[in-house]
Design a binder for these strands. Structure first.
Lengths: 191, 191
DNA sequence: ATGATTTATTAACATAGGTTCATTTTTACA
DNA sequence: TGTAAAAATGAACCTATGTTAATAAATCAT
């Protein structure tokens, strides 16, 4: 819980009242490695803040192929943004890649919070701007880059993840097979 | 200009004062078919509202290949969300696909507007939520779908565009070649 | 430490979609 | 309305990445 407060305090003043209010709407949860915290077909609308550990959101096709949408570590948010922000039911699952601790806040509670503390609207609007830019960049990468280029870019942008996340999961984020990632890694080493 | 007011009035009350203020910060511009309104390498940060006509934002590789990021018609917004929301310089251009009329608002003016009229923060926050869901869906499509599936989905989601936009531009949005789109279209007809 | 399980690599082959180039169809405009 | 330009299609060939299967390396649990 204090991790979330510290996180907010980096960006926005948190009064004692806000603090209390936050404590009322946040639920802490410990997750085991491999535990699914949100499964597809649910209508659960919640924001997840990572206190420690590492999680991923992913989409699984009928055929069983998995595509990672996002990874999240300490101080990151993760969620199913399609369920959260549309009326469509979830196609996404979220699992914990390690033992981890997360804070969960229900969407309606967050909305109440915006109403009560308008400064959070501005804060969130700015967050969303960054997220939109990030998503836009990923779309461009998916459109334009080869497997090798995608991997190089991933390493450059997300070096934090390189040691934590197994390569086959990175491959599933880049939209390539582990074998193809292996080829890319071999190419890289050459230089 | 009235188009923008009408657009806002669908979502949010617009007082005479807001109306006047909006008029001060908005610039109307007529564009010829083919005209570039924003070119890459610029640092111009502006939001574009389409009054009529059709525009597209796109990325052009060194090799000259073009990838369409977004199309926009009447009552849609378009912009370079990477330049707008990061400190990075633009890699994106925006061109008018038809003769068109647009309204341009500078980013700093928009930010002033949020400050002055906090109800726009909430409005924009909700817009951004929808945009995030849309971008997320596109990422999933790019990751998981074949050329044919992408085209089918495009037709389903954006039938408005089907008649307005030439196929080779649709291909550049889907990340495939016109030839490949042609193959997909042939497949479709079979059924 | 050691065997079991998971992850990564390698190789051989298959294929969707790219490339090149030619042809047809559509659109624009004089 | 006819002609030039732009867009769409088609065919032949090529290549990056997928697929399958085997092996090697790393990690985990007892």
């Amino acid at each position: 819980m204090n991790e979330l407060l510290d996180y907010f305090k980096n960006y926005i003043p948190i009064s004692a009242k806000i603090e209390d209010n936050l404590k009322e709407i946040v639920i802490e949860k410990k997750l085991d490695k491999g535990e699914i915290i949100l499964s597809n077909n649910s209508m659960k609308k919640e924001h997840i803040f990572v206190v420690n550990g590492c999680l991923r959101s992913f989409y699984k096709t009928e055929a069983g192929k998995e595509y990672t949408i996002q990874f999240a570590i300490k101080n990151w948010w993760i969620g199913d943004y399609i369920t959260l922000y549309t009326d469509e039911k979830s196609v996404v699952s979220i699992e914990s890649l390690t033992n981890s601790t997360v804070l969960i806040i229900d969407k309606t509670k967050v909305e109440g919070f915006y109403k009560k503390y308008p400064q959070f609207e501005a804060f969130q609007r700015k967050n969303f701007e960054k997220r939109i830019a990030t998503l836009q960049k990923r779309i461009l990468s998916l459109l334009t880059l080869t497997a090798l280029e995608k991997y190089n870019q991933f390493i450059e942008n997300y070096s934090v993840f390189e040691r934590i996340i197994p390569n086959y999961q990175i491959a599933s984020y880049l939209g390539i097979t582990p074998q193809s990632l292996s080829r890319a890694r071999k190419e890289r080493i050459k230089k």
